[in-house]
Design a protein around this nucleic acid. Structure first.
Length: 253
DNA sequence: ATGGTTGTACGACAA
C-alpha cells in the first residue's frame, strides 16, 4: 500500500501536477494540504475521471485538506471533535482498514506572535485528539504538513534556523510527544542519516541552492510496517511547482 | 542585502 502526503499550495493551480502524479506513481492514498478550494468548487469530477475516490474539507483562499484513494474512504471525519476552529486543517478516514489522519498544522508565522500561540493551542488540541484515536485504531497513520522540523538533520543550515518557527523547542516537544504515543517517524526510520527535506522557500532560489527543511511527515503505529519511503523532490523542480515536494511510504500489506 | 516569491484576488496577507 503506497501512501503519499503533498502540500500542493492551491489545488486550482496544481491540479495538472496532481493528475500527472496519480498517473506516474499510482498511489493507493494521496493526502493533500493547502487546497485553498471551497467544497463547492472542488475538482471532484477530474479526480474521479482519474479513477480515484475523493473526500475533502476546504475553504476559500486558505487551508483545505483532501484524501484521494483507489478504494473508497469510510468513516470520514473533518476537523478535531470538540475543538472550535474555522480553519479547515484535518480530515480523517478509514481506507483499506487503515485509519488515516490528514493534517495541515498551522505555520505560526513567528515565535511569540499571535499566530504562534494559535499554533501551540492547536497542537495541544490535535495531540489530545490523536491520543484518543490511538486507543480505538491499531492501524493508524498521521500524515501531512506538520510545519515542524524535528531535529537539526532536518534542516539545511541548523544555525540559521535555531529557535525560529518550525524549529522551536516547544514545537519540537509536541512532535516528540506524538512519537511517545506510539507513532514512528517512518521516513526518518527508513533514512536515519539523510536530510529528506520536503519544503524549499520560493524565495532566494532556495531549491536550486538546496536550502530545504523536512516539515512534511508520515507517522505510523507499530501495526503498520513501512518497507520503503522517500521524497519525490523532482516535483519541486517542475514548472510552476508547489513549494513542497510529495513524501511517500510503501506499507507492508 | 535582515534581502525575496507565490497564491489569492486586486490590496494585503499568509506562507
Amino acid at each position: 500500500m503506497k501512501i503519499v502526503s503533498w502540500n500542493v499550495n492551491s489545488l486550482n493551480v496544481r491540479l495538472p501536477h496532481v493528475l500527472d502524479y496519480l498517473k506516474t506513481h499510482a498511489p493507493d492514498v494521496l493526502a493533500l494540504q493547502e487546497t485553498k478550494t471551497p467544497d463547492e468548487k472542488f475538482p471532484q469530477a477530474e479526480i474521479e475521471a482519474a479513477a480515484y475516490h475523493v473526500v475533502f474539507s476546504g475553504q476559500k483562499t486558505y487551508n483545505g485538506v483532501a484524501l484521494l484513494s483507489k478504494t473508497e474512504a469510510v468513516d470520514v471525519q473533518a476537523g478535531i471533535p470538540e475543538f472550535e476552529d474555522a480553519q479547515r486543517r484535518v480530515l480523517a478516514a478509514t481506507i483499506n482498514g487503515v485509519r488515516i489522519i490528514d493534517v495541515y498544522i498551522p505555520n505560526g508565522q513567528e515565535v511569540g506572535s499571535e499566530k504562534y500561540e494559535y499554533k501551540l493551542g492547536w497542537l495541544k488540541a490535535f495531540s489530545g485528539y490523536l491520543k484518543a484515536e490511538l486507543v480505538t485504531h491499531e492501524k493508524l497513520l498521521v500524515l501531512g504538513d506538520f510545519n515542524i522540523a524535528p531535529a537539526d538533520i532536518d534542516i539545511h543550515d541548523p544555525s540559521r534556523w535555531q529557535g525560529k518557527i518550525m524549529c522551536s523547542d516547544t514545537e519540537r516537544q509536541y512532535f516528540f510527544a506524538m512519537l511517545a504515543m506510539g507513532l514512528a517517524d517512518s521516513l526518518r526510520s527508513l533514512h536515519p542519516s539523510e536530510g529528506m527535506h520536503s519544503w524549499w522557500d520560493y524565495r532566494l532560489n532556495a531549491f536550486q541552492r538546496n536550502w530545504g527543511i523536512r516539515i512534511d511527515h508520515i507517522l505510523t503505529t507499530a501495526a503498520l510496517i513501512p518497507l520503503a519511503g522517500g521524497v519525490h523532490r523532482e516535483e519541486r523542480g517542475r514548472e510552476r511547482p508547489s513549494d513542497h515536494a510529495p513524501v511517500w511510504v510503501e506499507l507492508q500489506t
